[in-house]
Simulated assay, not measured.
Amino acid sequence: MLRRSGSSVSRCVLAAVVAATLAGGLAACSPSEPAEPRQEAATSSAPPSSAPEPSGPTYVADGSAADNLPLFTAVTAQVWSSESRNSGRAYVDALVGAGFDRAAMQVTQDATTVGNPVESLQFSVRWGETECLVGQVGPSTGEPVTAVMPQLAEGRCLVGTTRAIDW
Protein backbone atom coordinates (compact mmCIF):
# COMPACT_ATOMS: atom_id res chain seq x y z
CA MET A 1 0.00 0.00 0.00
CA LEU A 2 2.81 2.37 0.67
CA ARG A 3 3.96 1.88 -2.82
CA ARG A 4 0.68 3.01 -4.33
CA SER A 5 0.47 5.85 -1.93
CA GLY A 6 4.03 6.89 -2.75
CA SER A 7 3.31 6.58 -6.45
CA SER A 8 0.24 8.78 -6.08
CA VAL A 9 2.22 11.29 -4.06
CA SER A 10 4.95 11.30 -6.72
CA ARG A 11 2.37 11.97 -9.44
CA CYS A 12 0.86 14.77 -7.39
CA VAL A 13 4.28 16.32 -6.77
CA LEU A 14 5.15 15.99 -10.46
CA ALA A 15 1.84 17.57 -11.46
CA ALA A 16 2.42 20.43 -9.04
CA VAL A 17 5.93 21.03 -10.40
CA VAL A 18 4.66 21.02 -14.00
CA ALA A 19 1.81 23.39 -13.11
CA ALA A 20 4.17 25.76 -11.30
CA THR A 21 6.61 25.70 -14.21
CA LEU A 22 3.87 26.44 -16.74
CA ALA A 23 2.46 29.22 -14.59
CA GLY A 24 5.90 30.77 -14.21
CA GLY A 25 6.55 30.45 -17.94
CA LEU A 26 3.25 32.06 -18.83
CA ALA A 27 3.84 34.86 -16.36
CA ALA A 28 7.20 35.48 -18.02
CA CYS A 29 5.41 35.86 -21.38
CA SER A 30 3.14 38.58 -20.06
CA PRO A 31 4.92 41.94 -19.90
CA SER A 32 4.29 43.86 -16.73
CA GLU A 33 4.35 47.16 -18.58
CA PRO A 34 3.92 48.03 -22.27
CA ALA A 35 7.57 48.75 -23.12
CA GLU A 36 7.29 48.39 -26.90
CA PRO A 37 4.91 51.29 -27.66
CA ARG A 38 6.91 53.66 -25.46
CA GLN A 39 10.15 52.72 -27.21
CA GLU A 40 8.58 53.20 -30.64
CA ALA A 41 7.15 56.55 -29.65
CA ALA A 42 10.49 57.65 -28.21
CA THR A 43 12.57 56.54 -31.19
CA SER A 44 10.20 57.65 -33.95
CA SER A 45 11.50 61.03 -35.04
CA ALA A 46 10.21 61.04 -38.62
CA PRO A 47 7.41 63.49 -39.32
CA PRO A 48 4.10 61.97 -40.39
CA SER A 49 3.87 61.53 -44.15
CA SER A 50 1.15 63.34 -46.04
CA ALA A 51 1.29 60.78 -48.87
CA PRO A 52 -1.21 57.96 -48.47
CA GLU A 53 0.18 54.49 -47.91
CA PRO A 54 -0.46 52.18 -50.86
CA SER A 55 -3.31 49.84 -50.14
CA GLY A 56 -2.88 46.30 -51.35
CA PRO A 57 -0.08 44.78 -53.38
CA THR A 58 2.12 46.90 -55.65
CA TYR A 59 4.12 46.32 -58.82
CA VAL A 60 7.75 45.37 -58.19
CA ALA A 61 9.61 46.13 -61.43
CA ASP A 62 12.91 44.60 -60.31
CA GLY A 63 11.24 41.81 -58.34
CA SER A 64 10.57 38.22 -59.25
CA ALA A 65 7.40 36.73 -60.65
CA ALA A 66 6.59 35.53 -57.12
CA ASP A 67 7.00 39.10 -55.84
CA ASN A 68 4.42 40.26 -58.39
CA LEU A 69 1.98 37.37 -58.01
CA PRO A 70 -0.04 39.15 -55.27
CA LEU A 71 -0.70 42.12 -57.60
CA PHE A 72 -1.42 39.83 -60.56
CA THR A 73 -3.90 37.93 -58.37
CA ALA A 74 -5.55 41.12 -57.07
CA VAL A 75 -6.00 42.53 -60.59
CA THR A 76 -7.43 39.21 -61.77
CA ALA A 77 -9.91 39.14 -58.88
CA GLN A 78 -10.94 42.74 -59.54
CA VAL A 79 -11.73 42.07 -63.22
CA TRP A 80 -13.42 38.76 -62.33
CA SER A 81 -15.80 40.62 -60.02
CA SER A 82 -16.72 43.13 -62.75
CA GLU A 83 -19.13 43.08 -65.69
CA SER A 84 -16.11 42.43 -67.98
CA ARG A 85 -15.22 39.09 -66.37
CA ASN A 86 -15.47 37.22 -69.71
CA SER A 87 -13.30 39.64 -71.67
CA GLY A 88 -9.64 38.79 -72.19
CA ARG A 89 -9.04 42.41 -73.15
CA ALA A 90 -10.29 43.53 -69.73
CA TYR A 91 -7.65 41.39 -67.98
CA VAL A 92 -4.88 42.59 -70.31
CA ASP A 93 -5.87 46.26 -69.94
CA ALA A 94 -6.13 46.00 -66.15
CA LEU A 95 -2.73 44.30 -65.91
CA VAL A 96 -1.17 46.99 -68.14
CA GLY A 97 -2.78 49.62 -65.90
CA ALA A 98 -1.12 47.96 -62.90
CA GLY A 99 2.32 48.19 -64.53
CA PHE A 100 2.76 44.88 -66.36
CA ASP A 101 4.27 44.91 -69.89
CA ARG A 102 1.69 44.43 -72.66
CA ALA A 103 4.40 43.11 -75.01
CA ALA A 104 5.07 40.24 -72.58
CA MET A 105 1.42 39.13 -72.45
CA GLN A 106 -0.63 36.39 -74.05
CA VAL A 107 -4.39 35.84 -73.91
CA THR A 108 -6.70 33.16 -75.28
CA GLN A 109 -9.94 33.74 -77.19
CA ASP A 110 -13.04 35.07 -75.38
CA ALA A 111 -15.53 33.17 -77.52
CA THR A 112 -15.85 29.76 -79.12
CA THR A 113 -16.00 29.33 -82.90
CA VAL A 114 -19.81 29.56 -82.71
CA GLY A 115 -19.75 32.75 -80.63
CA ASN A 116 -20.44 31.39 -77.15
CA PRO A 117 -18.33 32.52 -74.17
CA VAL A 118 -15.41 30.17 -73.55
CA GLU A 119 -15.46 27.85 -70.56
CA SER A 120 -11.91 28.85 -69.68
CA LEU A 121 -10.07 32.08 -70.45
CA GLN A 122 -6.31 32.21 -69.88
CA PHE A 123 -3.89 35.13 -69.83
CA SER A 124 -0.24 35.49 -68.92
CA VAL A 125 2.72 37.79 -68.45
CA ARG A 126 6.19 36.51 -69.34
CA TRP A 127 8.55 37.40 -66.48
CA GLY A 128 12.28 37.41 -67.13
CA GLU A 129 13.83 34.52 -69.00
CA THR A 130 12.29 31.58 -67.15
CA GLU A 131 8.93 32.38 -65.51
CA CYS A 132 5.36 33.39 -66.28
CA LEU A 133 2.47 34.77 -64.29
CA VAL A 134 -0.56 32.81 -65.50
CA GLY A 135 -4.23 33.41 -64.82
CA GLN A 136 -7.28 31.31 -65.65
CA VAL A 137 -10.92 32.27 -65.21
CA GLY A 138 -14.26 31.01 -66.44
CA PRO A 139 -17.13 28.72 -65.57
CA SER A 140 -14.93 25.63 -65.74
CA THR A 141 -12.54 26.97 -63.09
CA GLY A 142 -15.02 28.50 -60.65
CA GLU A 143 -12.95 31.10 -58.83
CA PRO A 144 -9.96 32.70 -60.59
CA VAL A 145 -6.71 30.75 -60.50
CA THR A 146 -3.29 32.44 -60.68
CA ALA A 147 0.18 30.94 -60.47
CA VAL A 148 3.84 31.38 -61.30
CA MET A 149 4.75 28.80 -63.94
CA PRO A 150 7.92 28.02 -65.90
CA GLN A 151 8.13 29.44 -69.42
CA LEU A 152 7.53 27.12 -72.32
CA ALA A 153 9.65 26.86 -75.46
CA GLU A 154 10.42 30.12 -77.27
CA GLY A 155 9.45 32.25 -74.26
CA ARG A 156 5.76 31.40 -74.43
CA CYS A 157 3.57 31.04 -71.36
CA LEU A 158 0.37 29.54 -72.78
CA VAL A 159 -0.06 26.35 -74.78
CA GLY A 160 -2.01 26.50 -78.02
CA THR A 161 -3.33 29.36 -80.07
CA THR A 162 -3.58 32.79 -78.50
CA ARG A 163 -5.07 35.97 -79.88
CA ALA A 164 -3.16 39.03 -80.95
CA ILE A 165 -2.99 41.81 -78.40
CA ASP A 166 -3.19 44.57 -80.99
CA TRP A 167 -5.25 47.24 -79.30
Rank of each mutant, 00 (worst) to 15 (best):
R4F: 01
R102I: 14
W127L: 02
V107G: 04
P31H: 14
A16I: 13
S32L: 14
A153D: 06
G142W: 09
S8P: 02
L152P: 14
T146H: 05
A27C: 09
A16Q: 12
L14R: 07
G97C: 12
S8I: 15
S124A: 15
E53Q: 06
S55F: 08
P52F: 04
G88Q: 10
V137A: 05
A103C: 01
A103K: 01
A94E: 00
N86S: 07
T141H: 02
W127P: 02
S10D: 13
A98L: 13
T113C: 04
S50G: 06
T58M: 05
V134K: 03
A90C: 09
G97F: 13
S10V: 15
L22C: 10
D62L: 12
Q109P: 00
T112P: 10
S45C: 05
A98H: 02
S5K: 00
N86T: 03
C157M: 08
S120G: 08
R38D: 15
A27W: 14
A98E: 00
S84T: 01
P117F: 03
P150M: 11
M105H: 08
S7L: 00
V137P: 04
S87V: 05
P31C: 14
V9D: 04
Q39M: 13
T112I: 10
R163T: 15
L26G: 12
T21N: 06
L69V: 00
R4S: 09
A15K: 06
L121N: 06
R3T: 05
A164N: 12
E143Q: 06
W167S: 14
V145M: 04
E53T: 09
V118D: 01
